[in-house]
Nucleic acid binder design. Structure first.
Lengths: 321, 321
DNA sequence: TTGAAAGCGTTACCAC
DNA sequence: GTGGTAACGCTTTCAA
């Protein structure tokens, strides 16, 4: 017990000299306290898990995800909490190690796949028990252990639409990957709703690329452009937009004169392209950090202060539209 | 015990009917096995920790790091191991939560900062006890619980130098961030060694940007270009190279005609720029995956099959040099 | 085929 | 100030 008191810094409970002796032994023996034993005793793991559904093995490569996870991780580290990260294919979601065994005080998740599948995963996560934050989804839930955190992709899509309407538009193509993400659906929805209400005559098409990979997108768009050239291409993300720009270039189109191009999630890519991208800025890092705050509040015994948080986004004008 | 046998799938030890009953109760009670208790009993956590030293709070944003961590995480997930991820400022390295408490079966690390500091952190990590893999460092160690895994940045820098020597060169600038990374040092070393041996008359300067941030790099390079224009700029990474391209453009320089530019770690950025970047391809994902293999081998009781693994890199020619 | 007992390393509680 | 005792949930061992 005295050793335990020293380790945990209960300085007033231990005589100075005893403390010294204990500290020396700790240094000599290279002792580190066993986290499992501590967790077992306190029934508190000081650890949060995040499960990320994605078909891309390099799931942390997505700039939105990497920023969100960084923000969450840093906030938790500051409070001496650990973050377990696991990527998982959407079909295998429920068998993720993190979910099968109870080793985290709270869970976070990013889902993808068909809406029904995402809903099923959402329900599964809720039933697991521990406090849960799901990012970038728009489900309803009245469970008190669940909170949703997402950015306002609907408004983002709408803002892009309004921006594009400054030029005369007859046709728009929305390019997105086959894989379903709630955020992408919302972007398209926001875009279409403004276009429809402003002008019935604009032709809006959706173009699916097999994956988010550069080649797939470039090929799909190039093929499309061969048959007809829309007035604008709205890409679901900036990296798609980067591939779209190349497709336009290879078809001899000038952006933005012949065709406008926009992205989404302005992190870095928009700066590198020529012209720079008109895009929508995403507060991904802050969302991760905020989720950490919500969770810690909840773990302190309070209830979630918000069950649904929507982060605003902002249009950022580049040269591409 | 019977319950335990059911949970662990020791089917032959339990009568079918008993198993059914247990499974029903598990479903009804929403039971998940407690990982801490299991770890304590088995003295095995089924978890690996990775500590990443970085001054950038969004430490997972770096494309090399995000790919490496994804590769490691996926490999571990496949074996039902968990990955704890923590970013930490180099000054606070030793106080990282993951390191203070023993909660992982093995550790991984990516270091940065002045060489002496990195060495100190390396020694600290070794003394912790559990099997350790350090990425992107070139230290020596004969401890049997340590392995080093890095890519051949020396050869990468040399390859770039040889490529650049195809044009007549009088002066080269190597642009890098203030923050020290072993990989960056190696790239510079490889570059300089070839330049020196091939031609004594080439002037090689190093230009330090305050951070890796786009604006910092662009400003630093633009200012430099105002006083003189070298024949080539070798950037420490692709994202620096992206900023360098903008600086060149804003100074009215044509790349590659007036000046050559190269990057490093060809993941995505090189595709987006105009012209595309001449860069060096990095096997980051594979390095993470491979580290996972090494660790699991080691945790199975064998010793590290290799204490120092060097991954080859390859030059990828773009339009910028 | 089932289950009782012991012990993994820690901390809350309490007696000294 | 110090340290004995019990208990956290699990698995190994062994007896029933």
């Amino acid at each position: 017990m005295t050793v335990s008191n020293v380790v945990r810094g209960k300085a007033d409970l231990v005589k100075l000299e005893t403390r010294r002796r204990v500290e020396q032994s700790i240094a000599r023996l290279n002792y580190r306290p066993n986290l499992s034993a501590r967790s077992l005793r306190l029934s508190e793991n000081r650890s949060v898990g995040i499960v990320i559904a994605d078909t891309d093995p390099a799931f942390l490569t997505d700039p939105f995800i990497s920023r969100l996870v960084s923000g969450l991780s840093n906030y938790l580290s500051g409070l001496d909490y650990t973050l377990d990260v696991q990527g998982v294919a959407p079909e295998r979601f429920e068998s993720a190690t993190i979910l099968k065994k109870a080793g985290n005080d709270a869970l976070c998740a990013i889902l993808c796949g068909p809406r029904e599948l995402r809903k099923a995963h959402f329900d599964y996560l809720q039933k697991l028990g521990p406090p849960l934050i799901v990012f970038q989804e728009v489900f309803q839930s009245r469970a008190d252990n669940v909170a949703l955190v997402h950015q306002d992709d609907l408004a983002g899509g709408a803002a892009l639409a309004r921006h594009l309407l400054k030029r005369k538009l007859r046709s728009i193509v929305f390019v997105r990957p086959m894989l379903d993400w709630c955020a992408v659906e919302q972007r398209e929805k926001g875009l279409r709703s403004v276009l429809k209400s402003e002008s019935k005559s604009i032709d809006v098409k959706t173009l699916l690329a097999a994956t988010e990979g550069f080649e797939d997108v470039q090929r799909t768009v190039t093929e499309y452009l061969r048959s007809r050239v829309p007035d604008a291409i709205v890409a679901a993300t900036d990296s798609l937009a980067g591939a779209v720009l190349h497709a336009c270039e290879s078809c001899g189109l000038n952006v933005p004169k012949d065709i406008a191009v926009t992205g989404f999630n302005g992190f870095d890519v928009w700066r590198y392209t020529r012209p720079t991208l008109t895009t929508v800025m995403s507060p991904a890092y802050e969302m991760g950090r905020y989720a950490g705050e919500l969770l810690m509040q909840r773990l302190r015994g309070e209830s979630f202060s918000r069950h649904n948080t929507i982060f605003p986004v902002s249009l950022r004008e580049g040269g591409s539209a």
